[in-house]
């Protein structure tokens, strides 16, 4: 199993590198689709690499370096805590994500349809912004003095890192 996990990790590193290069030099219009194309092609390539290593006995020699049960336990534990991480994020998406809330408003509206103005009446983006700012004040990324908002050092670092990444990867401009 060690070989498979190393291949998985190397595959992910390769995906990340490809993603950075493609997004920086040839920014795609459909970004999520490109991420999936990169992921699937990486997975196929490294699955092939793995099978070659198995076929020529390299995998067996590498796997013998670490007790099989230990690798299986570590992988199982990783899966267990990954599912926690996945589910915890699902809770965040269900709760905070703008798009499902908009779909719910349409779903529960009379006639199950809404105009743009109708949607704004039921779900205020202004209130959303206020809540987000309040949350950032609570998290120590923004401080509020009267009606003025300023970044804290933590918020400033966040803003600078994100600005760099958005510009380098050419993402985030559609908001």
């Amino acid at each position: 199993m060690l070989t498979a996990l190393i291949i998985g990790a190397v595959g992910f590193a390769d995906f990340l590198l490809s993603h950075i290069i493609v997004f920086h030099y040839r920014p795609p219009k459909k970004r999520f689709r490109m991420l999936m194309v990169l992921l699937v092609s990486t997975a196929f390539f490294y699955a092939l690499v793995f099978w070659v290593l198995v076929r020529f006995g390299v995998a067996a020699r590498l796997d013998a370096l670490v007790p099989q049960q230990l690798m299986a336990l570590l992988f199982g534990a990783f899966v267990y805590f990954f599912i926690w991480y996945f589910y915890a994020h699902l809770v965040v998406v269900f709760d905070r994500s703008v798009t499902p809330r908009m779909m719910i408003e349409v779903y529960t509206a009379p006639g199950k349809k809404l105009t743009f103005e109708g949607m704004k009446e039921r779900y205020s983006m202004r209130d959303k912004f206020v809540r987000e700012l309040d949350d950032m004040v609570y998290m120590g990324r923004i401080e509020r003095k009267g009606d003025i908002y300023m970044n804290t050092p933590k918020g400033l670092t966040h803003a600078k890192v994100m600005t760099f990444l958005r510009e380098y990867l050419h993402i985030g401009g559609h908001q």
Partner: peptide, 28 residues
């Protein structure tokens, strides 16, 4: 191995979406 790659991808995706779509990021 493929599952491991997929899990690492998902963890990265949570970070990617903060960079790409987060309202709070844009506010800061």
């Amino acid at each position: 191995g493929i599952t491991f790659l997929g899990m690492l991808f998902f963890v990265y995706l949570t970070f990617y979406y903060v960079v790409d779509r987060s309202i709070t990021t844009r506010l800061m």
